[in-house]
Amino acid sequence: MNFDDIKNDWNNPDVGAETISASMLKVKEAHTPIDIIRKKMKHEFFYQIFFLVIMFFLPVMISFSATTQMAYLACYAIICGFSAYYFFKFYKFYKNSYDMSMDSRKSILWFYYEMKLNIELYKALTYIVAFIAVAFGAIYILVEQNADLSKILAKLSPVYILLNCFISILIIGIITELWAWYYYGKYLKRVKKVVDELDFE
């Protein structure tokens, strides 16, 4: 194979007479991994807002005692606080523009770390909300003193209860990691592959 011959042919290509028109600039949706992740996070943002609204009306639908209601409101306020903080971070990520004219290594590393950071933020929010929900569950069990529930609890050893808490936390962790990997990880993996190919010597 003669690369010089190929170069000659390569540099005189027939690219057709089709002209790039203004309509091609009007397309709004880009398909870089970061754009895809942003779009998915935007969808999740609306689900979370919906979930928070439903949570607000939960005490109306379920009759809590005054103490449980106080605990619920405290947990709800904490979840809202954390959600607001993370929503703000995601909003910044969503609005943050990227520079495609840097050299490839810089550009792709930026993509990689920006995506990784936001996936970690996403996981952190999921952990926080899940742990607060578990904590509220524990408060509910202890405060409500439901007769049947008290009977069951009295029969269980503290070690068994602690073990259950540990397993619950482990399951939350595994589900969060798997979900984040399934939903966002493949994009990160693809960009990481290009980073590794660039760093290969």
């Binding site: 398909h31 870089t32 991994p33 970061i34 895809i36 495609m100 004219s101 840097m102 050299d103 490839s104 550009s107 792709i108 993509f111 994009y187 693809r190 960009v191 290009v194």
Partner: peptide, 13 residues
């Protein structure tokens, strides 16, 4: 060259 190549490198379908 840069923008085109960088786009192709991270393009995801």
């Amino acid at each position: 060259y840069r923008v085109s190549l960088n786009t192709a490198l991270v393009y995801f379908k």
